[in-house]
C-alpha cells in the first residue's frame, strides 16, 4: 500500500475532487485558494499521478445523456478454478468497461464475476451478454443482468473533513 497523503496533498485532493476550475490557469487557481504556488500544485499532482493516487485527469462523459441508455451489470457464476483465466478474457472484450471478480453471497447470490455492458438499447446489451456467455461456455453455471434504472448519486471520491 502506498504511503498515505501528506497534509498538503490532502488539501489538493479536497480542493479538486469536485472538479478542476474552468479557468485558463486552473492549477494556479487551486494554488491561490490553498496559498501554494502553481508549480507546487502541478508537481504534487504529477507525483500523485506517478504513485497511482491520481488515476488520470480527464473528463467523464455522461453515458446516459449521450444515448448509452442501457447500462447492464452482467453477473456470472463461474467455476472457481477457471475464473482468473476467463475473467481476463471477458475483461479484454472491447465492450466491457469494468470487470471484476467479487465474492459470492450464498445462498441468494451465486455470482462471482461482474462485467459492465453499455449499449444504446437493452437488445444491444443482451447481444453483448450472449458473446460473454459464449466465451464462458460450460464454466458458467448461471448469470443475470441488472440494468440501472436511475443514477441516484454520482460524485466520485470525497475526503471527509477531519
Amino acid at each position: 500500500m502506498t504511503a498515505a497523503l501528506d497534509p498538503t496533498d490532502r488539501r489538493i485532493v479536497k480542493a479538486t475532487q469536485a472538479g478542476l476550475p474552468l479557468t485558463p490557469a486552473p492549477y494556479a487557481a487551486v494554488a491561490e485558494a490553498l496559498a501554494l504556488t502553481e508549480a507546487e500544485v502541478i508537481a504534487r499532482l504529477a507525483s500523485m499521478q506517478e504513485r497511482g493516487i491520481v488515476r488520470r485527469i480527464a473528463v467523464a462523459p455522461n453515458h446516459y445523456a449521450l444515448g448509452m441508455t442501457a447500462n447492464g451489470m452482467s453477473v456470472w457464476d463461474v467455476a472457481d478454478d477457471r475464473i482468473s483465466e476467463l475473467g481476463a478474457q471477458v475483461g479484454a472484450l472491447p465492450f466491457v468497461t469494468h470487470c471484476y471478480q467479487r465474492p459470492r453471497a450464498l445462498p441468494g447470490w451465486p455470482y462471482n464475476l461482474f462485467a459492465m455492458l453499455h449499449g444504446g438499447s437493452r437488445a444491444e446489451v443482451e447481444a453483448k451478454r450472449d458473446e460473454v456467455a459464449a466465451l464462458l461456455g460450460t464454466a458458467c453455471r448461471s448469470h443475470d443482468i441488472l440494468y440501472s434504472t436511475r443514477i441516484l448519486k454520482k460524485t466520485g471520491l470525497r475526503l471527509r473533513d477531519e
Partner: peptide
Amino acid sequence: LISRLTRMRQIGAITRFGPFFDAAAMG
C-alpha cells in the same frame, strides 16, 4: 475549449471533469 466544457457540464453531457483519485492508492 473552456466555454464548450462549461456548456457541456451545464447541459449534463459531462458527469465530472478533473482528477480521478484512487482511494486504495491513498491508503
